[in-house]
């Protein structure tokens, strides 16, 4: 699971959960896999992200270094920053671990890089 994906995962379909966002990450195995850097894509994707959620997630798995807590208005001109965002969004992968719903504490295991978001019938809204 990449952090770009984590940025759009929620557990709000759990019964009794209001927002279920963001999910906390507990990673036991994190890998970095090289992906071609595409500044146009990174510039386009940043405004669509919840930046603070990305910042917290990156720091929680030890990859927050050099990532500002808030974004400067002209971030697209800062190529070093775009490269750091590229790495944290697309290259860092949580291979094993789990995600935790912030409201219910329900855990979702991540195995082989794939989060298991399946719920039992009794858990669904």
């Amino acid at each position: 699971m990449k952090l770009i994906t984590h940025n759009m995962l929620t557990s709000k379909c759990l019964k009794g959960v209001m927002t279920g966002y963001p999910l906390a990450i507990n990673a036991t195995d994190v890998k970095v896999k090289e992906v071609d850097f595409n500044p146009e894509f990174i510039t386009r994707v940043i405004p669509k992200l919840d930046w603070e959620v990305l910042w917290v997630a990156a720091n929680s798995i030890g990859h927050g270094e050099g990532l500002p807590k808030t974004l400067e208005p002209k971030f697209e001109e800062d190529e070093d920053l775009l490269k750091r965002v590229h790495k944290v969004l697309l290259e860092v992968e949580v291979e094993e671990g789990n995600l935790t719903c912030p409201e219910s504490g329900r855990q979702f295991p991540i195995s082989k890089g794939i989060p298991n978001m399946l719920l039992t019938e009794a858990e669904v809204q």
């Binding site: 990449k2 929620t10 379909c13 794939i114 989060p115 978001m117 399946l118």
Partner: peptide, 10 residues
């Protein structure tokens, strides 16, 4: 990236 999920509920 791939998620084990019911449709797109999460």
């Amino acid at each position: 990236d791939t998620c084990n999920m019911d449709l797109m509920s999460s």
